[in-house]
């Protein structure tokens, strides 16, 4: 069994934290939870495991390259392995990451049950990222990237993305 726990060498954390999702530049890959392990094996050799958010996420290749580049600059040689299990879930986004999303204008994922109510039954629970009103409506279950749905605020009319819950 693979565990849900991350194993990140504390020396590497601040370096990796500088890499962000190319499609959501305010979100560090560490706050997104896609780096599952990063260990320094033999002096300057770093082994990493990363996991995709969605299978077809085109950001994964870029993220891999960015990790290699930044670790190289810090004097490390990086070996990256893409792992699928355990599958990524929006629960792995850190509180700091959720806050960064909201500030950027993307509503953070709700709990699974609430998410279902919103996407299937049109319940108004997603808060507008502009005016904080809960009087919002689903425009489309699919948004600008695989991980998002499109919403619009009925009060201030702001269109915005909602990060779909994935469990």
């Amino acid at each position: 069994m693979q565990s849900n726990l991350q194993h990140i060498d504390p020396i590497l954390y601040p370096i990796l934290e500088q890499v962000s999702d190319p499609e959501i530049p305010v979100l560090s890959i560490m706050d997104m939870g896609v780096v599952r392990s990063a260990t320094i094996s033999d002096k300057k050799e770093v082994k990493l495991q990363i996991t995709p958010t969605y299978s077809g996420c085109p950001a994964m290749d870029v993220i891999g390259d960015d990790i290699k580049t930044i670790l190289n600059k810090a004097g490390y040689n990086a070996h990256i392995e893409l792992v699928l299990a355990p599958a990524w879930t929006t629960d792995w986004i850190t509180p700091k990451g959720r806050k960064a999303l909201e500030t950027y204008g993307i509503a953070a994922p709700l709990e699974a049950n609430a998410d279902k109510e919103v996407l299937l039954n049109g319940k108004r629970m997603v808060k507008c990222t502009n005016c904080k009103s809960q009087n919002t409506r689903l425009v489309s279950q699919f948004g600008s990237t695989a991980c998002k749905a499109q919403f619009q605020c009925n009060d201030c009319l702001e269109p915005f993305d909602y990060f779909k819950c994935l469990k």
């Binding site: 995709p52 969605y54 299978s55 077809g56 996420c57 085109p58 425009v139 489309s140 279950q141 699919f142 948004g143 600008s144 990237t145 695989a146 499109q150």
Partner: peptide, 16 residues
Amino acid sequence: EIDIACTNISLDLFGQ
């Protein structure tokens, strides 16, 4: 919206 939905589905399938 439908255009984006269909291509999102396509992207998921290609990823798999």
